[in-house]
Design a protein around this nucleic acid. Structure first.
Length: 366
DNA sequence: AGGCCAATACTG
DNA sequence: CAGTAT
DNA sequence: GCCT
């Protein structure tokens, strides 16, 4: 059992205890122990199995939690946690993660309505039942509804920060393969979105196929979903970020990068524009012939070059004809991994990420 | 035995 | 005032 | 619950 996993069980239990209204200081102890374990550079399980050592020697871990940890290592859970899971619905922890709902409200909701799923919660809000409870009103119903939407949007996605680090590590590994020309992140990572659903990497060069093999054999890559000569997909890290690596001919690199950077909506829009301009006649099968011009928007579609297709709205895109000054995206540089330069002028994406210099996004001006 | 991060704003 | 968030 |  992994340290992070053990810490997670402890934190979950703390959350449930909070819902059940137990002593706040005891709860804090669970959380303190969890964070101590996360920050430990050494395997807790190994310590547990070593008769020479004692868990209670670690700061934040006393007799009680040491016992819990031993139980976790032995059977994957511990008494306190089992008891809590028995008392509250499985979604209790999810509910805790939606904005505007805290432990007290969740408990109240459970006591009165036996809400056990987000769908039920959503329905109660719509049917205006929430306001029947003390200290809850129409405003909270709205807030919960928004919170649920937000929660669903972020579910299964990963913070840009995490994806960027994964990309950096994988790119370095693949670039080291003999005969690989370039390895470039595409997709929403390249668009600089705050969260990323999966990671797309493009590889060129005669070593591309070997790079796919290196990818699926990478130590932090597992659960290979598919592996052919042109594409491989697998999951990365314990978090299970899905990564797709595509081998593309050098000649198609530009078009491929454009296409796989997306967004999908953006591509649809570009395509419609091209269609309108009568440029698609010879291209029924969805292939992209214009390999040499990554920036075919400028040369063919008369759109200004920006360092990325930054997922702006189509109306916005429509309004950006090229302008004579040609001042679009002039101050951009490219990092070795093509991650930094990918973001460029961040356009109209809502909520620009700030403080991300450590990712190499040096050109975010905000 | 007794402390454990604190201050502030918004909502109901 | 109680609960939640920052 | 943990720590002093």
């Amino acid at each position: 059992m992994d340290n992070v996993e053990i810490a997670r069980l402890l934190k979950e239990t703390a959350d449930l205890m909070e819902i059940s209204g137990e002593d706040a200081f005891r709860i804090r102890s669970y959380r303190n122990a969890a964070s101590a374990i996360e920050g430990l550079g050494e395997s807790i399980e190994a310590i547990t199995r070593d008769p020479q050592r004692q868990l209670t020697a670690l700061p934040g871990i006393g007799k009680g939690i040491a016992g819990a940890i031993e139980e976790i290592v032995a059977r994957g859970s511990f008494a306190r946690r089992d008891e809590m899971l028995e008392r509250y619905p499985p979604t209790a922890l999810e509910m805790l993660r939606i904005q505007g709902l805290g432990p007290k409200s969740i408990r109240l909701l459970w006591e009165h309505f036996r809400v056990s799923t987000l769908e039920e919660l959503e329905r109660l809000c719509r049917e205006q039942k929430i306001r029947e409870l003390p200290r809850m009103g129409a405003k909270l119903e709205e807030k919960i509804l928004r919170g649920i939407q937000l929660y669903r949007q972020s579910a299964g996605r990963f913070l840009l920060n995490f994806a960027a680090h994964a990309a950096e590590e994988l790119c370095a590994a693949l670039a080291a393969v003999e005969g690989v020309h370039r390895v470039t992140p595409a997709g929403s990572l390249r668009r600089g979105k705050e969260t990323v659903g999966d990671l797309d990497l493009l590889v060129t060069g005669e070593g591309a196929e070997a790079a796919l093999a290196a990818f699926v054999n990478h130590p932090r890559v597992h659960d290979v979903l598919g592996h052919g000569p042109n594409k491989a997909s697998a999951r990365y890290g314990m978090e299970g970020l899905q990564v797709d690596v595509r081998a593309v001919p050098e000649a198609s690199f530009g078009a491929a990068l454009q296409y796989f950077t997306g967004s999908k909506e953006h591509n649809v829009h570009l395509r419609q524009r091209a269609q309108r301009m009568g440029l698609l006649g010879c291209d029924q099968n969805g292939r992209h012939g214009a390999g040499r011009c990554h920036d075919y928007r400028v040369s063919v579609l008369y759109l200004p070059v920006r360092r990325s297709a930054c997922a702006r709205s189509r109306a916005d895109s429509d309004n950006r004809r090229i302008d004579p000054d040609g001042r679009a995206g002039s101050a951009c540089r490219r990092s070795a991994l093509d991650v930094a330069g990918a973001v460029g002028t961040a356009g109209t994406d809502g909520g620009r990420a700030t403080g991300n210099q450590h990712l190499g996004f040096s050109n975010l001006h905000g």
